[in-house]
């Protein structure tokens, strides 16, 4: 699919999620089970992207001490969990990766 078509469809659907209840309020309630399920979307989708990015290299599982991205990601995860600061997380993670690459790569 063309990237422009992806953007237009993705953008339209995103807009509809934002417009949904602003336009439709009062025409039926949101089912409670769906509301509860929604809170699991961000952790599930994000770690489904993070895990393979960090643990796979060229299609192979790479769970070892010389996986520098894994080490940098673990440092970043500790920073993210402790301080809830996205910019600090990115800076720490990138600096850790550069440092490890300079030392071991």
């Amino acid at each position: 699919m063309n990237i422009w078509l992806v953007m237009l469809l993705g953008g339209l659907l995103t807009y509809l999620t934002r417009l949904s209840f602003i336009l439709l309020l009062g025409r039926g309630a949101f089912p409670a089970w769906l509301l509860r399920l929604l809170q699991y979307v961000p952790p599930a989708v994000l770690s489904a992207i993070i895990f393979p990015e960090v643990l796979f290299r060229e299609g192979q599982l790479h769970l070892a001490i010389d996986n520098l991205r894994l080490l940098a990601a673990l440092v970043a995860a500790v920073v993210a969990w402790r301080w809830h600061n996205a910019l600090l997380t990115i800076l720490t993670g990138m600096l850790t990766l550069y440092l490890l690459q300079a030392l071991f790569a």
């Binding site: 809170q39 699991y40 961000p42 952790p43 599930a44 989708v45 994000l46 770690s47 489904a48 992207i49 993070i50 895990f51 990015e53 960090v54 991205r69 940098a72 990601a73 970043a76 995860a77 993210a80 969990w81 809830h84 600061n85 996205a86 997380t89 990115i90 993670g93 990138m94 990766l97």
Partner: peptide, 27 residues
């Protein structure tokens, strides 16, 4: 790699109890 780090930064605050941790680990 900064995109991966961004995802880690976005994920961390969403993991606030056992169910959200389970969702992240199992996924």
């Amino acid at each position: 790699f900064s995109a991966t780090l961004m995802f880690i930064a976005l994920a961390a605050p969403t993991i606030k109890n056992k169910p959200t941790l389970a969702a992240a680990l199992v996924a």
